[in-house]
Design a protein around this nucleic acid. Structure first.
Lengths: 189, 189
DNA sequence: AAATACAGATACCGATCTGTACACCTATAT
DNA sequence: ATATAGGTGTACAGATCGGTATCTGTATTT
């Protein structure tokens, strides 16, 4: 397989960047931890930035697939799926390797909105929004747009508080808040 | 005044770290942008980390003072103050120099919970929580603890979405969500 | 006027940063 | 058998990293 080595590199780079940060991770550390030679790395990616972008693309795929598969497993109706978002988050927060949202961290290290890494992080959030909005619409929300944006705010806030507060609280609190938001959005239905 | 030079250093370092990130900002850049010699810097702070911690302490003071003064100006009753949090955030998001939450970014670059910079960022959130919880109690919330945690989640989420989405939406959406949370918390009063 | 203390400038330390050059290995395809 | 492609290892370039040493100037104290 021609893509195998490259995929392995991206997979491992993703894990190391996630654990260790972007600026704090040098190419030499990637060499040491992946066993892949620097020559090969620079054959696949012309710069460190391109490697980071590839890692973020993989992360975006993995995370969205996982989250939406998980909420489909956890809930039947669209409305329950919206709440299940926060049950899934709770499972994530409890994982040993949980370190917060990779895209929040990426945008924190690459702050200019025009920077490709920042832009790709914003795109990840947009894709999440699109999917959640679709579920809101399926649930019959009067304003799927508004509800989805509010739920996403809860999701991002829960992640931040899981990192900087108690992770177990964050998911439970966000779920309680989400229940209130749904109750308000569907008031009188 | 003996503290003047040191204070000026911390003030300017804060601004540069906020704009440019922590790892991405070298001491040489601080020398170039502040006009203060490296010798002086290392006379006041033994390491870069100590300088960062001093900058974060200043930021913590400034931000909390600003936020709580602003919501006192914007609202009269405790319950209205809770909503005014998000009006104040909206003003912040609209500022030209807005770049997200410095403590979220700090914890993104220094991920270990035991790291002093991470710990200090967590402490900032705890201090915010204490104050918001007090207002919740003054407002007569049945569970000030839960409500405060939910509102803080909204606050952090709004900041993230202000950075990675549309800043104007984020404050408005979070305020709408906060209204729903308050309605639920004070249901039947 | 002499002594002390502090700030600035500059050059430097060893380490590390991203990225490149070059020689060599090995499997497959022709 | 030999060309080709993808891989390794190593050494290195040039810049920058955090931090220090040294020297000069200057203000205050005695």
């Amino acid at each position: 397989m021609r893509q195998t080595k490259r995929d392995e590199l991206v997979r491992k780079a993703l894990e190391i960047f996630y654990r260790n940060g972007f600026h704090a991770t040098g190419m030499d550390m990637l060499v040491a931890e992946t066993g892949i030679s620097k020559t090969s790395m620079y054959k696949h990616f012309r710069t460190k930035e391109e490697l980071i972008l590839a890692a973020l693309r993989l992360r975006d795929e993995n995370f969205r697939n996982w989250l939406f598969r998980r909420i489909d497993e956890l809930a039947e109706t669209p409305r329950d799926k919206l709440l299940a978002i926060f049950d899934a988050l709770g499972e994530w927060f409890a994982m040993r390797e949980f370190r917060g949202c990779m895209f929040i961290k990426a945008s924190a290290e690459y702050q200019e909105r025009e920077h490709p890494i920042h832009a790709q992080s914003a795109e990840h959030k947009r894709l999440l929004f699109d999917h959640v909005k679709r579920i809101c619409a399926q649930a019959g929300a009067p304003s799927p747009d508004d509800l989805a944006r509010q739920l996403l705010i809860l999701k991002e806030g829960a992640i931040v508080m899981a990192v900087l507060g108690k992770a177990s609280d964050a998911a439970r609190d966000a779920r309680m808040a989400a229940e209130s938001l749904l109750a308000a959005a569907f008031a009188g239905r």
